[in-house]
Design a binder for these strands. Structure first.
Length: 1014
RNA sequence: GCUGAAGUGGUGGAAUUGGUAGACACGUUGGACUUAAAAUCCAAUGUCCAUUAGGACGUACGGGUUCAAGUCCCGUCUUCAGUACCA
């Protein structure tokens, strides 16, 4: 009986499905454990071998936890709203729901064949109306919430309305827009309902505001900051410009501090926490108000260095700052306006790329120093950003390099306020090891004390206070797309109104085309039935809009991160009980949050931050019990593709055109082109071009392959050309270029040799290569190789389907783990899979011989037990440390040892299967059943490690001389130190090594090593 | 620039608390079996010197601590990732 993996794997996959082996229960005596993968977007290309990496890791962990006696929830679903389906729809007219459905089918088939222990009964799809009903519901909760900085949590908007009605807004400490005017309770009660709504909108956790957004014209939509990479769209690489639009925003900034503090309690890597910390960007300092001479206006600045207040020698405002036009003097007006115009023209990208150039203009106005009352010139400069802090800075050139450079450039004074520091060359930006000087009451103090005192004194003057700033911006929540969640919002007189929860979901309307309208409205602007009837509470035809009972609906849709910000809660509820709730109280209470979350690090500042934000809101409002969604998080690395290249030699025909008439010249050109056209396509093997210049390659060709391109036909053409144009000048054919072209990796073997026949008969590219000639080295064509991201366009994608068909799912699972540490980026190399495949065959042979099962009740030997228990210990440690690659080697060692020991003992081989089962579940199940078990192996208890089997009676000591190991010596474990020394010193090899010298010192570490010094 | 991670044979990687560097695989070479191939099995495989015995050198580079350093400390370089005029 051989290892027939295809049959075995199918058999057990069917068994698991039929018996619902991995269905989780919401009631159990066992402790709970929730293992989650970041759910995939079902793209049209299907899975490649890189996708399952994280799923395999989480599956191993989930299966391990089941063996360890946990009630495991391990669900899977689809993030099925998204741009690619929409773009495909734009191109083909195919409804995104249709393509999405088809893609999900492919994904499911591919996932199933890998043998994951998912509980598919709890599947979620973000594009399913029954699901996005609750995404819409959460949006309404955000709309009906405000953030109370005093209680430090979100509260229902009604509590705010009560406060306004009884106290006005002056006692309210809320996270809100900064352009709010104060009003009394009386004012509030006298406001019209519309005025009140307008004010409330400035407090709500999701609000409508005119914001400057990242507009991507090519995609026709707005992008969030984290959807932009290097100034272009993450998807498609299209340019992005700044544009003002009215958009829904999420007041995530209200949670900045809690998002930061919350990180401390999470078992995430420091690397990931740092990314979020940087993104939140907390800086502690002070706000300082400067009076403007001759005006009533005040310039507020934010500074992290209030201790350097006496070093201020000028101020700089962002060119967009609202006071610029007001305070600029007549004399400076023209120059200032010209500068503003110039900077406005420069795109954000230009400004970013060009950090070196210093530019700015003096406004002519002066501010007053809060303490010294000295006049301070006010400049504008584009190094100050309107979007951060207050859009204005107090410049301290001796303590900040940018201020220093600016001052030097414009010849502004640079007062030194640091004791004993030389600032003639550059600013001294460090806060440490320095005392303040020339600063009145701050003299002699260090950073901390000086800052505190400066803030205190500013407070006394009423011109400043301690302040904390965050870089985290509110998140734009509107997208001008079709394939996303519709908002449950309609507009009455331009004011947004929420649709009552009872009438959700608001289902995406049908449209004819998925493009924005000609008038620039989002695709939903094309829907005919997209108005809200407040009487029937249904969506009705647009032509019924009367603005009294029937109103227009919101045309934007929600961004991709809406549905993924809460899906982990949806899985907690049994599919059968999901009707009235997003997840029942009991389910939420039982599962709490995700114990282990595995996914890519690219979501660090997007999904992972937004999810945390929504969970905190749901917690504040009492809908869930947890403050954080993901307790432990692991980022799996990416599996990269190994691209293959062929080198196409491009020839060009060279002949100086003679000075004959123009008509003749054109004809000549034409003839030369004709010659070019019949030049053959030659592909040259890698090492013949590697590290060679074009000239060298040209020479090489002239020497060796002249006949390949100066064919009879070509020579004849040249001859006739020469005759035609009456010239004797030689016509030159030379190598002009070498193109590096991707070829499909499937035609390349492990030794980088190209299967030329395969390539020539390829369905897609065969035509291109049909007549190509390949120049070989040592009889083969070697391709060039390079490690790149796996992508369809690079032809380096390896499909798991083929791997599963050729080697089996267990081989694929083991191999993906064996490749290297989970978190690491690593290239895929199919050749290596034979290693793990051979291991599985060896494992099989350990149990099954030619005449059937070999396993018997033989008493295990000492060696058998030692191998087993050392394996138990190592594998358990490895799984708990997510070091899956090393446990695969451990299995290999165990099987090699047991094979050498000719072990047939059931007492050893049965628990071994449980160890391997999380990694290679199919073969484990099959052998488990062959051993006579009638039940699935998946809940069999994990073997218990017994240290007594590993106790050794002797130790092979490495004997080293001056730290270099020379030989080993087997000595009893219990031999005392001085005895070891005696034995070693008396050993003939030691005497030979010492060669008559007397050692200075002998180090003996019992159980470890002996080192002889001297 | 700042923040973080990493640099080990031909390749992927191992060495979890300082204690035999290169486990386990891939690849390569040689051998067995076979008419042949595949499959399987056996052996060798860090580099250099040496017939052997053995020796020298080796974990990006330069120093240091230690009986002993891939591992700890100081400095430098390179690569990758995040972020970017953040006051």
């Amino acid at each position: 009986m051989t290892y027939d993996f295809n049959t075995i794997e199918k058999k057990w996959q069917d068994y698991w499905a039929k018996n619902q082996t991995f269905k989780a229960s919401n009631t159990s005596d066992k402790p709970k454990y929730y293992v989650l993968d970041m759910f995939p977007y079902p793209s049209g290309a299907g899975l490649h071998v890189g996708h399952p990496l994280g799923y395999i890791a989480s599956d191993i962990y989930a299966r391990y936890k089941r063996h360890k006696g946990f009630n495991v929830l391990h669900p899977q679903g689809y993030d099925s709203f998204g741009l690619p389906a929409e773009q495909y729809a734009i191109q083909t007219g195919q409804h995104p729901a249709v393509t999405t459905e088809a893609n999900i089918k492919t994904y499911r088939r591919q996932l199933d064949q890998i043998g994951f222990s998912f509980d598919w009964s709890r599947e979620v799809r973000t594009s399913n109306p029954e699901y996005y009903k609750w995404t819409q519901w959460i949006f309404i909760q955000l709309f009906e919430s405000w953030y109370n900085n005093d209680s430090n949590k979100a509260e229902h908007i009604d509590t705010l309305v009560e406060k306004f009605a009884s106290e006005g807004n002056t006692t309210v400490n809320a996270a809100c827009d900064d352009d709010i005017e104060s009003f009394s309770a009386e004012d509030w009660n006298n406001y019209s309902s519309e005025q009140q709504q307008e004010i409330l909108l400035k407090y709500r956790l999701t609000y409508l505001a005119e914001t400057e957004v990242n507009w991507c014209p090519a995609l026709g939509t707005v992008l969030a900051n984290d959807e932009i990479v290097n100034g272009v769209s993450e998807r498609g690489g299209h340019p992005v410009v700044r544009k003002k639009m009215t958009q829904w925003s999420m007041r995530i900034s209200a949670y900045a501090e809690r998002l930061l503090q919350g990180l401390d309690d999470l078992y995430w890597t420091d690397a990931l926490k740092d990314i979020q910390k940087n993104w939140i960007g907390k800086s502690v300092g002070a706000s300082v108000s400067f009076n403007v001479n001759g005006h009533d206006d005040i310039i507020d600045v934010f500074t992290t260095r209030p201790d350097t207040i006496f070093g201020v020698s000028f101020m700089t405002l962002a060119p967009e700052h609202e006071l610029v036009s007001k305070i600029t003097t007549e004399v400076q007006k023209a120059e200032v306006e010209a500068y503003i115009e110039k900077t406005a023209k420069r795109s954000e990208r230009d400004r970013m790329a060009d950090v070196k150039t210093i530019s700015g203009v003096f406004t002519g106005a002066y501010a007053e120093h809060p303490f010294s009352k000295e006049p301070i010139p006010i400049w504008i400069g584009d190094y100050v950003l309107a979007s951060y802090g207050t859009g204005a800075v107090m410049a301290v050139p001796c303590g900040d390099q940018r201020d220093y450079d600016f001052a030097k450039h414009f010849d502004i004074a640079i007062p030194n306020i640091f004791e004993g520091v030389d600032i003639s060359k550059e600013a001294y930006a460090s806060k440490d090891n320095v005392k303040i000087a020339n600063s009145d009451f701050l003299n002699g103090l260090a950073y901390k004390k000086a800052s505190k005192l400066a803030i205190y004194q500013l407070e006394q003057l009423g011109q400043g206070e301690g302040k904390t700033n965050y870089r985290l911006r509110d998140a734009v929540f509107s997208r001008q797309r079709y394939w996303g969640e519709p908002f449950p919002v309609y507009y009455v007189n331009g004011m947004p109104q929420m649709i009552d929860k009872a009438h959700l979901p608001i289902v995406l309307p049908e449209v004819e085309k998925y493009l924005p309208t000609e008038g620039g409205e989002p695709p939903l602007g094309r829907a005919d039935v997209w108005a809200w009837d407040t009487e029937s509470n249904t969506v009705v035809s647009n032509d019924k809009i009367n603005h009294t009972t029937i109103h227009p609906l919101e045309l934007n849709t929600m961004p991709g991160w809406a549905g993924s910000s809460w899906y982990f809660f949806r899985y907690m509820e049994d599919a059968a009980n999901r009707d009235g709730v997003f997840a029942s109280e009991d389910a939420l209470k039982y599962w709490e949050n995700v114990d282990l979350y595995i996914g890519g690090s690219e979501h660090a500042t997007g999904h992972l931050l937004y999810s945390r934000f929504w969970v905190k809101l749901l917690k504040d409002r009492g809908f869930v019990n947890v403050e954080e969604p993901f307790k432990k998080l692991i980022n799996q690395g990416m599996i990269l593709g190994t691209s293959a290249f062929v080198y196409r030699v491009k020839f060009s025909v060279n002949h100086s055109l003679n000075s004959a008439g123009i008509a003749n010249k054109e004809e000549q050109q034409k003839h030369l082109e004709e010659i070019s056209n019949i030049l053959p396509s030659l592909y040259i093997s890698e090492n013949l071009v590697k590290e060679k210049s074009l000239i060298e390659v040209d020479e090489y060709f002239k020497e060796n392959y002249l006949d390949k391109y100066e064919t009879k036909e070509v020579l004849e053409k040249i001859k006739s050309y020469q005759e035609n144009h009456n010239t004797a000048e030689s016509v030159n054919i030379h190598v002009a270029n070498i193109d590096k072209l991707h070829v499909k990796v499937q035609y390349v073997n492990a030794s980088d040799e190209l299967d030329i026949e395969g390539l020539k008969t390829d369905g897609e590219f065969g035509e291109d290569f049909k007549d190509a000639e390949f120049i070989l080295e040592n009889g083969v064509y070697k391709v060039g190789r390079e490690v790149e991201k796996m992508s369809k366009s690079k032809y380096n994608v390896v499909n798991p389907d083929n791997i599963v068909a050729d080697y089996g799912a267990d081989s694929l699972r083991l191999y993906e783990m064996f490749l290297g540490p989970l978190e690491q980026y690593k290239p895929w190399n199919t050749a290596g899979i034979t290693g793990v495949h051979n291991f599985l065959k060896k494992l099989w042979k350990l149990y099954v011989g030619e005449n059937g099962l070999k396993v018997n009740d033989a008493e295990p030997t000492k060696d058998n037990l030692k191998t087993l228990h050392k394996t138990i210990k190592k594998v358990q440690e490895d799984i708990e440390n997510f070091s899956f690659n090393t446990s695969v080697s451990t299995f290999m060692i165990a099987v090699n040892e047991l094979t050498a020991q000719k072990c047939t003992s059931k007492e050893i081989l049965k628990p071994l299967l449980v160890l391997i089962s999380p990694y290679a579940p199919h073969i484990a199940e099959e052998l488990w059943s062959q051993l006579g078990n009638n039940d699935t192996i998946s809940t069999a208890p994990f073997p218990v490690f017994d240290a007594s089997h590993l106790v050794e009676s002797s130790k092979k000591y490495p004997i080293s001389f001056n730290g270099k190991m020379r030989f080993t010596l087997e000595l009893p474990m219990d031999m005392p130190k001085d005895e070891i020394e005696k034995t070693v010193m008396a050993h003939e090899k030691t005497i030979a090594q010492l060669d008559g010298r007397t050692p200075k010192k002998v180090i003996v570490v019992p159980g470890k090593i002996v080192n002889i010094v001297g």
